[in-house]
């Protein structure tokens, strides 16, 4: 399954809930304010790094750039994808869940 998270990790517990529940081998795509969770050096980086060892964690490049994070170092194991990569992920996984 592909999990979509677009909330800031510092304002809501959305990413926590997602990472707690998501099965190993699934994928998590962080977009909109969700991309803040993928940046290295924040208070949630440890949780993301642990998650990235068990599943595929990606951040949407366009949303990083919009927020001034185009050149930011990401949490180890977290990857950048562009819109095309987003579409490929959605095709690759059978089902998609948007966390609200």
């Amino acid at each position: 399954m592909l999990h979509l998270v677009n909330r800031s990790p510092f304002e809501e517990r959305t990413i926590d809930a997602c990472l707690r529940v998501a099965a190993p081998g699934s994928a998590v795509l962080l977009y909109e304010d969700g991309v803040y969770a993928g940046v290295r050096g924040t208070g949630v980086a440890g949780r993301l790094e642990a998650a990235a060892r068990e599943m595929r964690v990606c951040v949407l490049e366009e949303d990083l750039a919009a927020r001034g994070l185009q050149d930011a170092a990401l949490v180890p194991g977290v990857h950048r994808v562009d819109y095309d990569g987003f579409v490929e992920l959605a095709i690759e996984y059978d089902s998609v869940t948007t966390w609200r």
Binding site: S8, E62, D63, A65, A66, R67, L69
Partner: peptide, 19 residues
Amino acid sequence: LDDGVYQLKRDQDPARIGR
């Protein structure tokens, strides 16, 4: 404060998302 500090991040390029 809180996520508001992200407003101060330099080099923002929100044209990439049409904003």
